[in-house]
Design a protein around this nucleic acid. Structure first.
Lengths: 190, 190
DNA sequence: ATTTTAAATGAAAAAATATTCATTTATATT
DNA sequence: AATATAAATGAATATTTTTTCATTTAAAAT
């Protein structure tokens, strides 16, 4: 018996990820994925029942890994601003070093492929971060506004900045990152 | 001679806009557009050479109108902060009252349909806003950082906030809008 | 070494979608 | 009112893309 090839399985996923990055979800073709993964078109169907299943698998995989990695950064023993800075940089770093993953998550977030359950799971994953923001508010370090406002403000600006960086080749030097962080911090601090 | 029906032309565009809002660019079909516009499939081709042209036309139309409406808000006689507030609220208002347009612009920005020329024109349209930010920096009201940083910071946070508002039903009350504006202003001010 | 099993292949079929076009219909011009 | 012209139609055709499947290949089990 010939077993499934884990490397091939991974190659297909990476190829799909790359294809979405290059052409968007609208241009995603099974043939392109196979070609990029250097397998035959039919091979993709050995690992994924169909295109839909492949896409949903990718979304859940990358959504979970990105948010869990983020939360692992929180250290309750550290002062609020240290944790905040750590989180901000981790998120920015994820978006910058994994543009394809960031693009995939963004593209799928608003698409008929994504199930309601997946949305809810993603929402729940943010709980520890809301918690951190609450502590910042209790310590009167953060503006007394809804977490929704804070989260949208932070994630929106980070994602957009990362996007500009890899779309327009705008280099985010350490100086610029520190400037961007200062904007985020000044924005939320009370 | 039968002239082209301007209302039909508009109906097709509105239908396409609505289709993209409902199913994303990935699910956009000429047949769906025609059905929603209540015309025959072939009629769409009377007004647009093909799908590509329709999509690019929509992108440029809404990009131009949204940005030009913004720029009309700038009044050089007013102090910087007055102009900035006016711009921030206009942009937020656009994103909140035209979710379909905002979604279309966001979805098309990263799709294989969009031509390079369309992208470049969109970039040029931002010039007057860059100009305003430059003045803010000259007056030492705005942090001395690249316009790219400022624009990404502002547009990213506004878009994300508007998106959360109409996706999750998070109501942006006048108080919350003022709080969000304060975050933006505190973020960019030096 | 042989057998067994499932992966891998890629051409072909199926399905989905875009586009065309012969025909009909509506409107401006004469 | 008749004519000319282009819009409008939607079925037919073309094209693109997904999915299947008969066949080959590779690895594990015997």
């Amino acid at each position: 018996m010939k077993p499934k090839d884990e490397q091939k399985q991974e190659a297909i996923q990476q190829a799909a990820l790359q294809c979405i990055f290059e052409e968007g979800i609208a241009g995603l073709k099974m043939e392109s994925i196979a070609k990029k993964a250097q397998v035959a078109t039919g091979t993709v169907y050995v690992y994924f029942k169909n295109k839909d299943e492949l896409i949903n698998h990718l979304f859940l995989r990358f959504k979970r890994s990105s948010i869990l990695a983020l939360e692992a950064q929180i250290d309750v023993k550290q002062p609020f601003k240290v944790n905040f800075r750590q989180l901000w940089y981790s998120y920015m770093n994820f978006a910058l070093t994994n543009p394809a993953q960031a693009t995939l998550l963004e593209q799928l977030h608003r698409s008929p492929y994504l199930s309601q359950e997946a949305r809810q799971e993603a929402e729940k994953l943010l709980e520890p971060i809301r918690q951190l923001l609450n502590e910042g508010k209790q310590q009167q370090l953060v503006k007394p506004v809804d977490n929704e406002l804070l989260l949208a403000f932070l994630s929106g600006s980070i994602n957009q900045l990362a996007r500009r960086s890899y779309e327009m080749g705008f280099e985010l030097t350490p100086l610029r990152l520190e400037q961007a962080f200062a904007m985020a911090w000044d924005g939320i601090k009370s």
